[in-house]
Amino acid sequence: MKHVSIKEAKDRLPALLREVENGEHVVITRRGEPVADVVPHVRKKGGIDFEAMSRWKRARGIDRVFGDPSPDFDDPFPEDFLLRPLP
């Protein structure tokens, strides 16, 4: 953790921000007393968290999400498929 005065922070702000982007924490002080902390902004990772999905499935006893498709999965429908009423 780095401590800098307000004047030094004002004079070196771009360099300090580069350090913060690299994970450094900077404390800005006035007369030796801390005034503000400059810390990296937390960015949420995008995409799918497969580990979280695996934990969720294990907690519920799910070993597979989808079963195997039936052998006739991609067979064409009969001609009268849309004409028959639903049961």
Rank of each mutant, 00 (worst) to 15 (best):
V27F: 01
E24T: 08
G47S: 07
V35C: 09
G32N: 01
G46E: 07
R30P: 00
G32E: 03
F50H: 14
A36T: 03
S54Y: 06
P34F: 05
S54C: 08
P34H: 09
H25N: 12
K45C: 00
V26A: 00
R31I: 04
T29G: 03
M53G: 04
G46S: 10
P34L: 02
S54W: 09
V42I: 15
G46W: 00
M53N: 08
G46Y: 05
A52C: 00
R43G: 09
I28D: 01
G47N: 10
D37E: 13
R43V: 15
R31T: 05
H41K: 14
G32V: 00
E51H: 15
V39L: 13
V26L: 04
E51W: 08
G23H: 07
V35Y: 03
G32H: 02
I28M: 06
R43F: 15
V38P: 01
G23A: 11
V26Y: 00
K45V: 08
H41C: 12
E33A: 04
K45D: 05
V39N: 11
V27W: 02
R30T: 04
E51L: 13
N22M: 13
R30S: 12
N22S: 14
I48M: 10
G46C: 02
H41S: 12
D49Y: 08
G23M: 04
G46P: 01
R43C: 10
T29L: 01
R43D: 06
G47F: 02
D49A: 05
G23S: 13
K44L: 07
M53H: 09
F50L: 09
M53L: 08
A52M: 00
G46M: 01
M53S: 01
R30W: 05
S54T: 12
I28Q: 01
V35E: 10
V39G: 02
G32I: 04
S54R: 13
T29W: 00
E24I: 06
P40F: 10
V27Q: 08
F50N: 05
E33N: 12
V39T: 12
T29A: 03
P40G: 10
D37F: 06
V27I: 15
G32Q: 03
E33M: 03
E24W: 01
G32A: 05
P34K: 11
R30L: 14
H25R: 14
V39W: 04
P40I: 10
K45E: 11
V42T: 14
V26D: 03
G47P: 07
G46D: 11
V42W: 12
H41R: 15
P34R: 07
R43L: 15
I28T: 02
S54G: 14
F50M: 09
M53R: 08
G47Y: 09
P34W: 06
H25Q: 13
I48P: 02
E51N: 11
P40S: 11
